[in-house]
Design a protein around this nucleic acid. Structure first.
Lengths: 208, 208
DNA sequence: GCGGCATTCTATAAATCAATAGAAATTCAG
DNA sequence: CTGAATTTCTATTGATTTATAGAATGCCGC
């Protein structure tokens, strides 16, 4: 055997293509989130990367491909977190809490990819949209199943509409997510607590 | 007195400028809803009206003005409906029901102006955005006050965060609204029932 | 029918933008 | 150092788009 492969043993002094491309996707996410897909220009993205407009095409075949990549990125971590939570041994209430927390946190910490997925994905042509749709549906179905399980357990009314419940949780989180991005003062921990409580028990209204 | 004003007594054989402009705003709303503000062209709007691109400028000084008008239109009816409901003698639960119903219905019936307001208003420059912001806030505050009143009545926990509650109801309705527009099969009456119940009592989860 | 006003059209200016081709620069192994 | 591969740059093309100016058309009262 010859000496160990320098690629894996040498300290990396230069970013790989994949790493630089990942930064390009993040830059695209940021710009798309701020100005929308059509409102953003390839120059905006290039500027954020410190390269020229034309150079961007070394990483993307088209602006459209950049949007698709942003959407794929957004869903990857998002779905992964959901898988971790639903397969854990937490109680139902705790799972909901973690799901909401993970969802809201991603708006604060991550990049703006999730917002771009929510707001701009419909501007993708059919074919590209289909490709990312699967992951989005998977997320919704996992949440749906979580509710469904709870109905079978008897800890939720038998007539609960689990599709409605799942979609509502997602919608609520996305609505607050949009606000979280725009208002740095919003406290994710506090919102997580309030959203989970609301989902499970509403605002506790008592008939007078 | 001379003969009665023909404008008011004669059967209208021709649309007034205001009416035609209103149709232009509706066309803009429709196109903006479908393609987004930046993705829509003035030609798209003109096509939907059956006029030429240049002729559109008889009704708008700019594309930007068209977007502002769409947002103003969206909020006018929206705020008006809220005023009617909150000032009525309905019970709290009924009011929430009507508010949700009015909100969701507007996505089904009206034009797509409300969706445009939600998704595209941030692309307006500061000054124009400020002008429409007031109406949006008014809606939220009215809803907030409704919750606040209920806390004072003692039919809701004293520590209820009314701002959170109001924003959540709006967010939930907007999330479902976006789905309603895309899926004609969704039943607004059914969704209204489920959304109101969820807001008031959550999904009735019982600790096992 | 005529004069004036309202409405729409044609044609075009000016700016912007995505995408490409090929040259330059950088990096790196031998 | 040298040559090849990678990465970035320059320069440009072609298409699109907003907005304007001025001409043409339609409409209405008289």
């Amino acid at each position: 055997m010859t000496s160990a492969n320098p690629v894996t043993t040498t300290i990396q002094r230069k970013e790989t293509y994949a790493q630089k491309r990942a930064r390009a996707i993040a830059a695209a996410a940021s710009v798309f989130a701020e100005r929308g897909y059509h409102g953003a220009t390839t120059k905006d993205i290039a500027d954020r990367l410190g390269i020229r407009q034309g150079s961007l095409y070394y990483y993307f075949k088209s602006k459209e491909e950049a949007l698709e990549e942003v959407c794929i990125l957004a869903l990857r971590d998002y779905v992964h977190a959901m898988e971790q939570i639903t397969s854990s041994s937490l109680s139902f209430g705790e799972k909901i809490f973690h799901i909401v927390h993970s969802h809201l946190s991603s708006y604060r910490d991550d990049n703006e990819a999730l917002k771009v997925h929510n707001d701009q994905r419909l501007y993708l042509p059919e074919e590209r949209r289909e490709r990312i749709k699967k992951d989005g549906s998977r997320y919704r179905v996992m949440l749906e199943d979580l509710f469904h399980q709870e109905v079978l357990n008897g800890t939720m009314p038998a007539d609960t509409d689990c599709q409605f419940a799942a979609q509502s949780v997602i919608g609520l989180c996305n609505a607050w997510g949009a606000l979280i991005i725009r208002d740095p003062l919003l406290d994710v921990e506090d919102l997580t607590q309030k959203c989970s409580t609301m989902v499970l028990n509403g605002f506790h209204h008592q008939h007078p």
